[in-house]
């Protein structure tokens, strides 16, 4: 039970943080509107449910909507700020406020409900466990492997890696870094919106739902640096710590475990897990 809790908690953390990491890894920009994109994704699920369509359709819709809005954001807001990373944090935070208010104006402040993607429990090793959490574990693996493929197996991935390693050199080699950035931002935000849909069976959907996830994701990404492998390790370690603290000490302490542990890890080893 404890092991399943740890694995699935880590999986949910990974799903939520992956999009943020994609953007931070390549662009070295912290997208503080990350929470807003989770929210956008979740509201895509609400729209799909409202239209009476199959709830699974929300996944591609969220990816498209999130990516498209991400593209617009990259072009108008993030692009002028690549040289001012701290200002980028602020501008995206401001954007998060704006998105939150727009959603509020459109859908109202109320908690929205979406039909569950999967419900019920299954027996694993004799324990009945939430089916959806196990599904989330699978989804996390798929996203992780998908990124591994994207980075290692495609042209875009290779150019992105070049940009991560040495941007000036990449430019010198004729890589259009502007395009790589745009593509990365679109994929990162699309993925975040997708994660928003995946969260809906676990949480309520309301205009501020994203903020609760933002800090945890942010801290994990700080620790992970620019590597998805490191992110997976970080999610397992800190997600595990959170579950253990919550189970055996106090859920309240568990809630701040990730943030505090990440800060301490960064203090001791400024590069976090990126070296691993």
């Amino acid at each position: 039970m404890l092991i399943l809790d740890i694995l699935t908690t880590a999986a949910v953390l990974f799903i939520v943080s992956a999009g943020l990491l994609a953007i931070f890894g390549v662009l070295k920009i912290i997208n503080f509107a990350h929470g807003a994109w989770l929210t956008i994704g979740a509201y895509c699920a609400v729209i799909v449910a409202g239209l009476g369509l199959n709830p699974w359709l929300a996944l591609p819709l969220a990816f498209l909507v999130g990516g498209a809005l991400g593209g617009v954001t990259e072009h108008f807001i993030v692009r002028p700020l690549y040289q001012r990373p701290l200002d980028a944090i602020l501008a995206t935070w401001g954007l998060g406020i704006v998105v939150g208010q727009l959603i509020t104006l459109w859908f109202g402040r109320d908690v929205q409900f979406t039909p569950g993607l999967l419900s019920g429990t299954v027996d694993v090793f004799g324990i009945s466990y939430s089916l959806y959490r196990l599904f989330a574990l699978g989804a996390a693996v798929v996203i992780g492997l998908g990124f591994a493929f994207l980075l290692e197996g495609t042209r875009l991935g290779l150019t992105a890696q070049a940009v991560i390693m040495n941007e000036t050199l990449a430019k010198g080699l004729g890589i259009d870094t502007g395009k790589v950035r745009l593509a990365t931002f679109v994929i990162g935000t699309g993925l975040t919106a997708l994660a928003g849909v995946l969260l809906t069976p676990l949480t309520s959907v309301d205009p501020t739902m994203g903020v609760a996830w933002l800090i945890g994701a942010f801290m994990l990404v700080m620790v992970a640096g620019s590597s998805f492998g490191a992110l997976a390790v970080a999610c397992l370690v800190f997600g595990g710590a959170q579950v253990i603290v919550s189970t055996f000490v106090s859920p309240i302490l568990g809630g701040i475990t990730v943030a505090v542990l990440c800060a301490l890890v960064l203090r001791i080893s400024p590069k976090g897990f990126a070296r691993a």
């Binding site: 039970m1 809790d5 959490r133 676990l202 903020v211 609760a212 959170q242 189970t247 309240i252 701040i256």
Partner: peptide, 20 residues
């Protein structure tokens, strides 16, 4: 008797404790 912060959204550990 278990509490989660007001903005907390992950009840996993508490539910496991409840079940056991």
């Amino acid at each position: 008797e278990e509490y989660l912060p007001m903005d907390g959204s992950d009840w996993t550990a508490i539910i496991s404790n409840l079940k056991s």
